[in-house]
Each structure stands twice: as structure tokens, then as C-alpha cells.
Design a protein around this nucleic acid. Structure first.
Length: 480
RNA sequence: GUCCCCUUCGUCUAACGGUUAGGACACUGGCUUUUCAAGCCAGCGAUACGAGUUCGAUUCUCGUAGGGGAUACCA
């Protein structure tokens, strides 16, 4: 196998944050590179001086890093490569493949309008056959030239797309687009070809919105006499309503998801599932390594996919549950730090420091550790007396009827100095037996008294971890 | 207007031209009597439409409808 090394790239323009569509495109490139042992290049397409900003450049890097998509080359800025584009543009000028055009876009639009063309009718070829005299006349007027590619008028241009299969365009539909702007900057359509070729990109995997630019790109490759890379166009990501995904659907910036408690691995997992599947059955929850080993360009779908926030939440919850205890501890400690919750030596609980205590709580939480937004509420009552008492839960469970039960339980625990989960269970059962009621009749109000809600981990474990003295205190408080 | 792409449950998707069209999310119901946003089980639910090719079309072809993209001196 002396195959050329596979090389792919992600080439965003720094004109906004890293959005889910871009992230998904980046991910497919990254997964493919990692899968086949190729190289992944990050290139910033900042040829539009008006719209490119340093902030979005930084935002894109942060997004890539958060998602763990490391690149082997770059970030390469196109604005650093102006000389290179000029060199190749000059070659094409010499052969006449690039010709100067002195029409402003306003003039082109005005002519199109006068000719009764539609809004978006393209360039009309006005300057295509300018004579030397005409050129110097324009120059004499002080007009600046932009350079257009002389595209073939007849025949068709086609390629075999990795995702879409054969794609073919009539050449007459491809107008002479600007390659070099009056300010000397190349347009995207020129720079992308020069860079992909010079950087040795073997597979151009990009968004579906570039399909109709591809024939033009192919013509540039041809004009330069260069071999073409392979192309694969990923379908777009739609909003839940089937329309193009936008802010009005909710979060679209990758960083917003980070803020919302989505795990990087979960985001990557969900994004991978949008337009790709491992085939067969299963819930689609994959660790990063599994994604890499399972990924295949052949399984990339050709139809657009709707972004489903609910499914993302599900994937996220699955990743949260499967986190290593050490990682759960880290997340929990962050919540504690943020709220100023520390460990108190006076608590009679089976732990001797906060990490130890949290580890026990995490174990008891089990599969309930599935939503970072709920984590603060799930931890609060272990650390403070200032936890939320849910109105409805209190109204239904802490009544004049339940007060004596809680009091009796408090007495029992105090008398027995109950400590372990087993002893807590024994205390509840003893009180229940004594009163000839079901344990549940005590457990439910006790849960509200201790946690403020009707949902929690197993009561005996919770009681044990909150600790005898605090349990007694809360039971007494709730029975007043 | 023109060019191009797309179309399987509400959503993401699976299915060498031959399957009771499978799975996952969501939803609904049940179980779990120590609750639950945790767990388990079940149910609901799709091949856009119309032709054609074929013994047989989700699958191949054409048309229609719907959606999307491009038509920039944005990418």
C-alpha cells in the first residue's frame, strides 16, 4: 500500500461562533482522519476582511478544543498566504484564464435588471472580451479590476461525490466568478482550491451548501492543470421544524451547549448521529473511541437531519451516568465550590472529608446522576439547611397527621443513636410496626422533611449520609 | 426565473429487489409499593403522491408535490 496519506481539513470562516453545523462538518473530517490515521488540518478562511473578526477566530478555536477535535496542522490563516494566491493568479492571468473585469456588482445588477432578469441573475460576461485599448481606457478612468475565471461555455462538469454519488452540472450554468477582488484578496472560491491542492488535501468533506460551488472549483483545478481531490458533501442540519437551523430554534453555538451542561463527549456523540449511523440496532450511545472505530464515510446520509434537543439531552444523560466516579466527583466538587458548600467535621457521617463524602453521595445517586442542571438540587441538602422545600411536596406530606410520625422517628433515632443505612431502616421499620402502619407512610414524609422534595435516592442511604443529628433536627423541624 | 440536491414512524435512522419494514429518542400505559426526573416491560407510530420496469419494489426509472441549497467582489 503506497497510498497517498489521507488528509482532510475543516475550513471555517471567522465570521461567527462555531455553530452545530460547522462542528458536525468538522467532526466528520476529524473522525475520518482519526479512523484512517490521516491528517486533520484546521484552516481559517478569512479572505473577507469586512466580516472576519478576531473574536470569532478565538471562539472557533475554543469550540474545537472543547469538543476535543485536535488538529495536526494549523490553524492556518488564509490572510497570511496572499503571496501564494497572487502567484497562482498571475499564472492564470498569463494564460488568459483569468481576465480583468471593471464592472462593480452594482453595475452588473443594474444591467441584469434592465435586461429583465431575476434578482439573482449572475455575471453577464460584460468584460469577457475586452481589448487592450478598452482595458487601458478603464484603467485611465481610475477603475479597479477584479479578476474573473473564464469558464467553459459548453459541455458538462461532473464528479462522483462520496455522499451524493454522481453530480453533474451544465457548464453554461456556471458563470465567470470573481477570483481576485479589487483589494487583491482572493475570493473563497479561489483560495479554497489553491489551499486544498497545495496542502495536499485528499478528501474535501464540507457542507452541502458548497455543492453548487464545486463545479466552479473543478474548473479552477482544470485551469491550473491540477488533479482533483475527492469531494463529499454533508447534508445540512435543520431545526426541529424542518427549516434551516437558526437561533430562534434555541442554542446553535457549540459553546452554549457547554454552558447548558452538555458534556463534550455527549455533544460529539449526538453530532455524529446527525447524518451518520453505525447501522444495526442499539441506542447510539458511543464513547469517542467507539465513534472513531465505527465511523465510515459510506454511512453518511445524503438527506438533511433535524436537530433534536431532546435526543441530545438523552445522549447527554447516558454519558453522565457512564462517567467514571472520579469525573463525577470533579463535576460535583465544582457545584459545591460554586455554592460555597464545604464539609463540616461536626457531621456524624461516614466520611472524613468532602471528596470522600461526595463519593458516597454519588454512589447512592446512581443513575440519577444524569443532569448537571439538577445536580445542585440533588446535592444541596447534604451540605446545607438552606435547601429548597417544594411547596406542593410540603403541603401533601408534612401535615398534622404526619407530624407525630416524624417526631417518633426522631425519638427513635436519637435513642438508638442510629448511624448506618441499616440502622436507619431498622428505626423506620420499628416505628412503623409500633404504630401498625406501612413503612412507606413514614418514609414519604421523611423524604420531604430531609430533602424538600418527593424524589431522591433511597431514603435509608440518604438518612445515613445526612447523618443522625441533622436527620433528627430536620424531622423535628418538619413536625412543628 | 435557472441550476443542483433531498424525501422510511413526530425526530434520528436500519433494511444484497423477496423482512410481520427493525432499532433509538419522544409519547402513552404498566411494573418497581421506598419515591423518582432512576430502572424494567409493553403499546402507539413510517416507506410523500402517481406511473413504469419486474414474478416481486422502501430499494431501480420517470413525473408531481413538498423541503433545502446555489445563483456575492460571503464562506
Amino acid at each position: 500500500m503506497s497510498e497517498k496519506q489521507i488528509k482532510v481539513r475543516f475550513a471555517p470562516s471567522p465570521t461567527g461562533y462555531l455553530h452545530v453545523g460547522g462542528a458536525r462538518t468538522a467532526l466528520f473530517n476529524w473522525l475520518y482522519a482519526r479512523k484512517v490515521g490521516g491528517k486533520f488540518v484546521l484552516r481559517i478562511e478569512d479572505t473577507d476582511q469586512e466580516r472576519s473578526t478576531e473574536e470569532s477566530y478565538q471562539a472557533i478555536l475554543r469550540g474545537m478544543e472543547w469538543l476535543g477535535m485536535d488538529w495536526d496542522e494549523g490553524p492556518i490563516l488564509q490572510s497570511d498566504r496572499l503571496d501564494i494566491y497572487k502567484e497562482y493568479a498571475d499564472k492564470l492571468k498569463e494564460t488568459g484564464k483569468l481576465y480583468p473585469c471593471y464592472c462593480t456588482s452594482e453595475e452588473v445588477a443594474a444591467r441584469n435588471a434592465a435586461a429583465g432578469e431575476v434578482d439573482h441573475a449572475g455575471y453577464d460576461g460584460h468584460c469577457r472580451e475586452l481589448t487592450a485599448d478598452q482595458i487601458s481606457a478603464f484603467e485611465g478612468e481610475g477603475r479597479e479590476a477584479r479578476w474573473r475565471l473564464r469558464t467553459p461555455d459548453e459541455g458538462t462538469t461532473f464528479w462522483y461525490d462520496i455522499v451524493m454519488d454522481k453530480l453533474e452540472f451544465p457548464n453554461e450554468a456556471i458563470v465567470d466568478r470573481v477570483m481576485i477582488k479589487p483589494d487583491g484578496f482572493p475570493t473563497y472560491n479561489f483560495a479554497v482550491v489553491i489551499d486544498d491542492y497545495l496542502m495536499g488535501i485528499t478528501h474535501v468533506l464540507r457542507g452541502d451548501d458548497h455543492v453548487s460551488n464545486t463545479p466552479l472549483h473543478l474548473m479552477v483545478y482544470d485551469a491550473l492543470g491540477w488533479d482533483r481531490p475527492k469531494f463529499g458533501h454533508m447534508p445540512m442540519i435543520l431545526g426541529p421544524d424542518g427549516k434551516r437551523l437558526s437561533k430562534r430554534h434555541g442554542a446553535t453555538s457549540v459553546e452554549e451547549f457547554a454552558d447548558k451542561g452538555i458534556l463534550s463527549d455527549a455533544m460529539v456523540n449526538y453530532l455524529a448521529l446527525l447524518g451518520w449511523s453505525a447501522g444495526g440496532s442499539g441506542d447510539g450511545v458511543f464513547m469517542r473511541k467507539e465513534l472513531i472505530s465505527k465511523f465510515s464515510l459510506k454511512k453518511v446520509n445524503s438527506s438533511p437531519a433535524a436537530f433534536d434537543y431532546t435526543k441530545l439531552e438523552f445522549i447527554n444523560s447516558q454519558h453522565l451516568k457512564r462517567l467514571e466516579p472520579a469525573d463525577k466527583l470533579l463535576l460535583s466538587e465544582a457545584v459545591c465550590d460554586k455554592n460555597g458548600w464545604s464539609f463540616s467535621e461536626t457531621w456524624q457521617i461516614p466520611a472524613n472529608d468532602r471528596a470522600n463524602y461526595l463519593n458516597k453521595i454519588i454512589k447512592v445517586l446512581g443513575g440519577r446522576f444524569s443532569d448537571l442542571n439538577r445536580l445542585p438540587d440533588m446535592l444541596s441538602f447534604f451540605f446545607t439547611e438552606d435547601f429548597t422545600m417544594e411547596q406542593e411536596a410540603v403541603a401533601e406530606n408534612l401535615t398534622p397527621e404526619t407530624a407525630p410520625l416524624l417526631n417518633k422517628l426522631a425519638d427513635k433515632i436519637e435513642a438508638d443513636k442510629s448511624d448506618s443505612a441499616e440502622e436507619m431502616e431498622a428505626a423506620i421499620k420499628a416505628v412503623a410496626a409500633d404504630l401498625d402502619i406501612k413503612p412507606g407512610a413514614i418514609i414519604h414524609p421523611a423524604r420531604v422533611a430531609l430533602t424538600g422534595t418527593t424524589r431522591s435516592a433511597g431514603m435509608y442511604d440518604v438518612m445515613c449520609l445526612v447523618g443522625g443529628p441533622r436527620v433528627i433536627e430536620r424531622l423535628r423541624r418538619a413536625s412543628k
